[in-house]
Every structure is written in structure tokens, then in C-alpha cells.
């Protein structure tokens, strides 16, 4: 298994993570649906996770994978809180469009 993974050059992992991360960033920036935004955040986190796991494997160092677990925990917590907020937003605005949330303007 390790061999298989190592057959793929590390560059590919970097590129894949970068692409995923950038997709996540653009998703957060462009989309207005709060759910999609949250999903994109997830995507960014996981892009990083992928990269950490890949490097950890290549270098034979488990520390990177430990970080991955931390991030997954944080991501789970974030998703829970984020979705909780989202539910409340929806109850108040009957919408999940974040562009409506500009009460602090001016």
C-alpha cells in the first residue's frame, strides 16, 4: 500500500491539494448559499489534510497524520457550530443567503 502511494510523485498531491484548496477559496468567496460556503470551508480543510497525510507518508513521520486528526476534530466542531448558526439564520430570515446578513453595515 505504501509502495503504491509512493509511486505517485509528491508533486501530484501538492497540485491536487492546491486545486482543492483554491476551489474551496473561490467557493467561499463567490457562493452565497451558506451551506455551500460551509462545504467549501470543509473542502479547504480537507485539502490541507490531504497534503499533510501525503507528506507524512512520504517522510515516514507520523506527526503530520496526528495533525490531520486534530484538524478533523476542529472541522467537525466547526461544522456543528456553523450548521447550528445556519439553522438560526434560516429561522430568522427564511433563507440561507449570506448576502442578506449585512445588519452591521455603516
Amino acid at each position: 500500500m505504501l509502495e503504491i502511494i509512493r509511486q505517485i510523485p509528491i508533486d501530484y498531491y501538492v497540485w491536487l491539494s492546491t486545486v482543492l484548496f483554491v476551489i474551496g477559496v473561490f467557493g467561499v468567496l463567490i457562493r452565497r448559499n451558506a451551506i455551500v460556503v460551509l462545504m467549501c470551508v470543509e473542502l479547504m480543510l480537507n485539502a490541507v489534510n490531504l497534503l499533510l497525510a501525503a507528506f507524512s507518508t512520504y517522510l515516514g513521520d507520523a506527526q503530520g497524520q496526528i495533525m490531520v486528526f486534530f484538524i478533523m476534530v476542529v472541522a467537525a466542531a466547526e461544522a456543528a457550530v456553523g450548521l447550528g448558526i445556519l439553522v438560526m439564520i434560516y429561522r430568522n430570515t427564511k433563507s440561507t443567503d449570506i448576502s442578506l446578513l449585512d445588519k452591521l453595515r455603516n
Binding site: L29, I30, S99, L101, L104, N106
Partner: peptide, 17 residues
């Protein structure tokens, strides 16, 4: 400068990115 602070979260994020 106040115009930048329009309460629209995307703008802030764009700025951050």
C-alpha cells in the same frame, strides 16, 4: 474607507484572501 465596510462578508473575505 467606510464604503469598504459594507457588511457584506464576501468583500471581507476577498480582502483577506
Amino acid at each position: 474607507f467606510r464604503k469598504l465596510q459594507n457588511g457584506n462578508i464576501e468583500y471581507y473575505l476577498i480582502g483577506m484572501v
